[in-house]
């Protein structure tokens, strides 16, 4: 069975369309999710860094909650909560309640919150590893704390966190496969559709797995290029410690 793989279904234009459409959705989810995740990461790290009353404990609670519970349950909760809040309409033909905020939006928001919580911690550890003397240099030149954060700590921290942030993006891409479970038509969703029609489970899963492998590998390569372009010459190799 293992050595008689059948990939002829890949030649079927319908399945090709499905996979491409699914791929498009997956890329859209992960693209928007990554941007939101980075915004949450920077804002959250700033809130904790500046010790902002009320916002800081709330941010910490958010991190603790999202990091210690399954992203799938977070997604399902968000999906049903929004419909419970009355943000739904009743389909006239089937009589079924359909949430107003699309499944797509729920997936993007839940991924942004889950991976954003990780991003906050990643950026915070980056800020903590900015040398104390560099900050002191800024203070002595009359920079305010906000200016030091914006011009000195954040730019250095973001560079230092590229490797960790890359794994976070990869995690986001892999987690995005759960979108299929709230009927968002991502690549995972269409792949399961194809298995239902063709019964070629192994073959379809291999293709699906390769698709994710290619996406994540491209992201890692891109991140490496970015890291290279943003390298601080002479910094990090023990030159400035």
């Amino acid at each position: 069975m293992l050595f008689s793989l059948d990939f002829e279904w890949l030649a079927d234009p319908l399945y090709q369309d499905w996979l491409l459409e699914g791929l498009g959705t997956t890329l859209a989810i992960t693209g928007v999710g990554t941007i939101l995740m980075l915004i949450i990461g920077v804002v959250g790290a700033a809130i904790i860094h500046f010790n902002i009353p009320v916002a800081k404990p709330l941010t910490i609670i958010m991190i603790d909650l999202f990091r210690n519970t399954p992203p799938l349950v977070q997604l399902l909760f968000l999906y049903f909560m929004l419909s419970d809040l009355g943000m739904s309409y009743t389909d006239a033909t089937t009589g079924e309640r359909i949430p107003l905020l699309s499944g797509f939006a729920c997936v993007v928001i839940s991924l942004a919150l889950y991976n954003g919580s990780i991003a906050i911690e990643v950026i915070r550890s980056g800020i903590n590893s900015v040398p104390r003397q560099t900050v002191e240099g800024g203070i002595s030149l009359g920079y305010s704390r906000a200016q030091i954060f914006r011009w000195i700590e954040l730019p250095i921290a973001l560079r230092l966190t590229i490797p960790n942030m890359t794994s976070n993006v990869v995690s986001l891409i892999k987690t995005s496969a759960q979108a299929a479970l709230v009927a968002v038509t991502d690549v995972m969703f269409y792949a399961t559709q194809i298995t239902l029609e063709t019964f070629l489970n192994l073959e379809v899963m291999i293709v699906l797995w390769l698709i994710y492998l290619v996406i994540t590998t491209l992201v890692v390569l891109l991140a490496k290029q970015l890291a290279k372009a943003l390298t601080i010459p002479g910094f990090g190799a023990g030159a400035m410690k």
Partner: peptide, 20 residues
């Protein structure tokens, strides 16, 4: 403190330049 630091600059043992 900003006006004071305008008037009084400082140079450190570890240079404290901005590496980036």
């Amino acid at each position: 403190l900003v006006p004071l630091r305008h008037k009084v600059s400082m140079v450190f043992q570890q240079y404290n330049l901005f590496p980036h």
